[in-house]
Amino acid sequence: MSDNVAADQLRLFIERIERLEEEKKGIADDVKDVYLEAKANGYDTKTMRAIVRLRRMEKNARQEADALLETYRSALGLD
């Protein structure tokens, strides 16, 4: 009986993961649609993706990344 319980539990975990993966795919499709809509309205989606990535970062991590980028740009004469 214990093997059946473990097998049932494993099956339930797998099914939950499959449902979540399907939801994740749906959300990814929705995000893609928003970027396509923004592009159709004249926005640069590459820049928008960079902004979204920056907004996910904590302020101090973003400041460190900005400072490092500026240091590298300056070293390469890209100012």
Score class of each variant (00 low, 15 high):
1 M>A: 15
1 M>G: 15
2 S>Y: 15
2 S>K: 14
2 S>M: 15
3 D>K: 15
5 V>R: 14
7 A>H: 12
8 D>I: 15
8 D>A: 15
8 D>E: 13
9 Q>G: 14
9 Q>V: 14
9 Q>D: 12
11 R>A: 14
11 R>P: 10
12 L>Y: 13
15 E>R: 12
15 E>G: 10
16 R>C: 09
16 R>Y: 03
17 I>Q: 09
19 R>T: 06
19 R>Y: 08
20 L>T: 08
20 L>V: 09
21 E>N: 13
22 E>C: 10
23 E>Q: 04
23 E>M: 13
23 E>K: 05
23 E>C: 09
24 K>E: 00
24 K>P: 02
26 G>D: 01
26 G>E: 00
27 I>R: 06
28 A>C: 02
29 D>K: 11
31 V>P: 03
33 D>S: 12
33 D>M: 09
34 V>C: 02
35 Y>N: 00
35 Y>Q: 00
36 L>G: 13
36 L>Y: 11
36 L>Q: 08
37 E>G: 12
37 E>H: 07
39 K>R: 03
40 A>L: 04
40 A>I: 02
41 N>R: 07
41 N>T: 01
42 G>M: 02
43 Y>I: 08
44 D>E: 06
45 T>M: 07
47 T>G: 12
48 M>S: 06
48 M>Q: 02
49 R>Y: 08
49 R>A: 11
50 A>I: 06
50 A>H: 08
51 I>H: 03
51 I>G: 05
53 R>T: 03
54 L>D: 13
55 R>A: 05
55 R>E: 08
55 R>P: 06
57 M>R: 04
57 M>W: 02
58 E>Y: 12
59 K>Y: 09
60 N>I: 08
62 R>C: 03
62 R>M: 12
63 Q>S: 10
63 Q>I: 08
63 Q>Y: 10
64 E>V: 01
65 A>H: 07
65 A>S: 08
66 D>R: 08
66 D>L: 09
66 D>K: 07
66 D>G: 05
66 D>F: 13
67 A>F: 04
68 L>G: 04
68 L>K: 11
68 L>P: 06
71 T>M: 11
71 T>I: 06
72 Y>Q: 03
74 S>F: 13
74 S>T: 05
74 S>N: 08
74 S>Y: 09
75 A>M: 06
76 L>S: 05
76 L>F: 09
78 L>Y: 02
79 D>Y: 07
79 D>Q: 05
79 D>S: 12
79 D>K: 13
